[in-house]
Computed example of a mutant assay.
Amino acid sequence: MVIFSRVIGLLRGLSTTLDARIVYHDIMRPFAESVLQEKIAKGPSENAQWINDTPVHSDVEAKLRQILVELGNDDKILGIQVCAYKDGEVIIDTAAGVLGRYDPRPVQPDSLFPVFSVTKGITAGMLHWLVDKGSKLSVGILSE
């Protein structure tokens, strides 16, 4: 890594001296991505730890895990957490996959995902549902 950094510094210095406009990130990105993709074991067929080893709470969770394995083998999901309650009891609590395309750490039941603004879609859907049901809505704007 040190030698790599030194070479990049040398190339940057040469390109500045020769007044050449080269963006090294664009040149090296495909190579870095290919190396990272080789190191990340995708899907359950390549990664035995793809589904988090937690107890199965119900038959529904067992079926869900089978579906998650199929989706993972088809590269349809990268990482997922699912938790569901029925009558106050946990019936599904499972996690599978990896945290990101370039982050091979496994998804845990307590993993945090950046989901900023995800609830906007839910809020808009609920608003449309209320309008469809004929609810009268009032909108207020607060200002100082």
Rank of each mutant, 00 (worst) to 15 (best):
L99K: 03
G72Q: 00
K63A: 14
F116N: 13
D110G: 11
G88L: 12
S58K: 02
Q66M: 07
Q66V: 07
L68T: 07
I122D: 12
Y24M: 06
R6M: 11
E33C: 04
V118K: 08
A84K: 07
A32G: 08
G121P: 09
D74I: 10
V115M: 06
H57W: 07
R21K: 12
W50E: 05
I8Q: 02
S45A: 14
I91P: 05
Y24N: 01
D53Y: 02
H57K: 08
L127T: 14
E89V: 14
E70L: 04
I80N: 02
D53V: 10
M28L: 15
P44C: 09
S117D: 10
D74E: 14
L112I: 06
A96K: 04
F116L: 15
D103W: 07
Q108K: 08
T17I: 13
I22W: 00
R6Q: 11
I77K: 01
E38N: 06
G100M: 03
L64Y: 03
L71P: 00
A95F: 02
F113K: 02
D26V: 01
Y102H: 04
H128L: 13
S45N: 11
P114I: 07
L11A: 15
V7P: 02
I40L: 07
E89L: 14
Q81G: 05
S34T: 04
F31S: 08
V7T: 09
V98W: 00
I80F: 04
P104H: 00
V69K: 03
V35P: 00
T123W: 13
V7H: 09
M28Y: 09
G88Y: 12
K120A: 06
S15L: 15
H128Q: 12
M126F: 15
A124E: 11
E89Q: 15
A95P: 08
E89G: 11
S58A: 08
R65E: 05
R6I: 12
L10E: 14
F113N: 01
E89W: 13
A124C: 12
A84N: 06
V2I: 15
E33W: 02
Y24S: 05
Q108L: 11
A96P: 05
H57Y: 12
Y24I: 06
V7W: 10
I3W: 04
V115N: 01
S15G: 11
G9L: 15
L68Q: 06
P114L: 05
P104T: 00
A124N: 12
I80Y: 04
H128R: 13
I77C: 04
N47A: 03
P104Q: 00
Q81E: 03
V23G: 12
G79M: 00
R29V: 05
E46L: 14
H128I: 11
L112H: 02
L99M: 09
I40H: 04
L11V: 15
G9I: 13
S111G: 03
T16C: 13
N47T: 03
I3M: 08
A124P: 09
P55L: 11
P30K: 00
D19E: 10
A32V: 14
A124R: 11
S111A: 05
Y85I: 06
P109A: 01
L64V: 08
F113A: 06
V2F: 15
